[in-house]
């Protein structure tokens, strides 16, 4: 696909966009960027790919290349430190708003909000790792290692630790939420 796009095939480009934008988005969001900043980072990553199509060393690893570019741009945007809102704020607002998910039952929406809140409370590295692991198509550990700049051998243990923290955070949120639920 990369070669075809490099030759000017817009359809091949669209296929790349369909396949990898989810991964690139997850990297930017994983670093806690808000919608505007994440959108800019994703667009910059694709613009970079467009200008590097013919010089890409390893076209088979275009997904990792894009994600690595997105990680560097995300860190740059975080350094810039403007237009920044506390991580997860706009996502939490989006989830609890009825406009965002009009067809989802209230109870499901409450659970969604609780899961999301626990997720947003994780350390940045956990969020980034889990977001990248969730992307579709699933990246290999070698790709995750390259994208997040962490040793391959540390990914499995970190994944387990982050998910444990997620459970702990969820349970303590739930404890705090319980009295309110009883009143209802």
């Amino acid at each position: 696909m990369v070669e075809r796009a490099a030759e000017g095939d817009a359809r091949a480009w669209s296929e790349l966009v369909q396949q990898y934008t989810g991964l690139v988005w997850s990297v930017a969001r994983g670093y806690g960027l808000d919608t505007a900043d994440a959108s800019d980072v994703v667009q910059t990553s694709w613009l970079r790919l467009a200008e590097n199509l013919t010089t890409l060393r390893d076209p088979d690893r275009v997904g990792a290349w894009l994600a690595t570019t997105a990680r560097r741009e995300s860190l740059r945007v975080l350094r810039r430190g403007q237009r920044q809102i506390p991580s997860g704020m706009d996502l939490a607002a989006q989830i609890t708003s009825e406009d965002a998910q009009p067809d989802v039952p209230v109870l499901r929406r409450e659970r969604d909000a609780a899961v999301s809140h626990a997720f947003q409370g994780l350390p940045a590295l956990c969020r980034a790792l889990l977001r990248v692991l969730m992307s579709d198509p699933a990246p290999s550990y070698a790709e995750v290692s390259e994208v997040l700049d962490m040793p391959v051998g540390s990914i499995g243990p970190r994944r387990a630790r982050c998910l444990d923290r997620m459970r702990t955070a969820f349970e303590s949120d739930d404890e705090r939420a319980r009295p309110i639920e009883v009143v209802r």
Partner: peptide, 8 residues
């Protein structure tokens, strides 16, 4: 975002 990526 998808549209912008396609447009890139």
């Amino acid at each position: 975002v998808l549209a912008a990526a396609t447009g890139a």
